[in-house]
């Protein structure tokens, strides 16, 4: 892949480049399954693919939120503790009772939206850099989650997710786990929103040039705030799904998702400066990432080796996707 570094900076058409990146992400996933099948026969079988997809669905949900904010050149570092807080809020608010499930889910999603609103307000209105604002909010959510739950020692903290929520995640429908149906629905919905609505068009416009968008009458602040709210809600949704999947909440369950969501977004071909890429690529990126992790686990790669390889893979993809826009 290293030839790409030295390649002449040919001016490419933006849409072609986007398509190329999505294709890359899909190919990467396919290649990983192929390689996995070689080193670990059966890896590319239906059951194994389904298992990888199930894992990818959680990352994919979080990455959907990350995708929205990265499209306007932002980033959401508050994901870990929004997700963790959401998981704990769901079980403590529902007390594991079906009767309270609807209320608890609504409350949890509302919490995610509220955190996202605060993030978006700080970034869009108070002009705090996204890195700083969301980093600080991650701390705020960590402190609140730990403090209010007494470090997950509260009476209600040991509750399980309500049976309906668990069924909605673990149940099957037409031979596929329900969590995958949820993800498929999200893939379609996010792709539709980004590709076919005014909101999506404005999102790309802001990501490409916020000033020009404002001068074309786009309400940049409102859209930015909405995008961060979406990110908060997707983190909360992932928290709900995870706690529904595993039954109980735990501390630190959100931590891996920050790195993984950024990785999925990058592998999926989004430009970290905003304005380029789509969620199909990010979904494929989530699959690739989880396939990679599964392959490495299947061959008993030790933790340090996995950590090194994640980094190397991301660097190679970055180099393959080409130089950043500042170059021209």
């Amino acid at each position: 892949m290293s030839e790409a570094i030295g390649a002449a900076p040919v001016r490419r058409f933006a849409l072609d480049a986007d398509g190329r990146r999505v294709a890359f992400a899909v190919l990467a996933a396919a290649a990983l399954f192929a390689v996995g099948d070689l080193v670990h026969p059966g890896f590319a079988g239906a059951a194994s693919i389904e298992a990888v997809a199930l894992n990818a669905s959680f990352v994919g949900l979080v990455a959907a939120g990350q995708c929205f904010v990265v499209l306007v050149g932002g980033i959401d570092l508050s994901i870990p503790w929004v997700l963790n807080g959401a998981a704990i809020l769901l079980v403590t608010a529902s007390l594991g009772q079906n009767a309270r499930a609807g209320f608890a889910v609504a409350l949890t999603l509302g919490m995610g939206a509220l955190v996202g609103f605060v993030n978006g307000f700080g970034i869009a209105v108070l002009a705090v850099p996204a890195v700083v604002m969301t980093l600080a909010m991650n701390g705020v959510m960590e402190g609140l989650t730990l403090g209010l739950s007494g470090g997950l020692t509260c009476g209600a903290c040991a509750s399980y997710a309500p049976p309906v929520v668990r069924a909605a995640v673990n149940g099957g429908f037409l031979g596929l786990p329900a969590a995958l149906w949820v993800w498929l629905f999200i893939i379609v919905a996010v792709t539709f929103v980004l590709g076919f609505t005014g909101f999506g068009r404005k999102t790309y416009a802001i990501g490409n040039n916020a000033l020009a968008s404002r001068l074309a009458g786009v309400n940049v602040r409102a859209i930015t705030i909405l995008l961060y709210m979406l990110s908060g809600m997707f983190s909360a949704l992932a928290g709900i799904m995870l706690v529904g999947f595993g039954g109980q909440a735990s501390l630190g369950m959100g931590t891996p998702f920050l790195f993984q969501s950024v990785a999925a977004v990058v592998i999926g071909g989004l430009d970290i400066l905003g304005g380029r890429g789509n969620y199909v690529g990010v979904a494929a990126g989530s699959m690739s990432l989880m396939a990679l992790i599964s392959v490495l686990l299947a061959v008993d790669m030790p933790e340090y080796g996995r950590s090194i390889l994640y980094g190397v893979v991301i660097l190679l993809l970055l180099l393959a996707y080409g130089r950043n826009r500042a170059a021209d």
Binding site: G198, R201, Y204, A205, N209, A212, S213, V218, G275
Partner: peptide, 26 residues
């Protein structure tokens, strides 16, 4: 003024995009 990487169509209709939407859909 322009969103250089975006299409001619996207650039032409940006200021009117709200009017072109029905229930949020273009």
């Amino acid at each position: 003024g322009l969103l250089l990487p975006m299409s001619v169509r996207d650039n032409l209709t940006l200021a009117l995009i709200d009017l072109l939407c029905r229930a949020g859909v273009i």
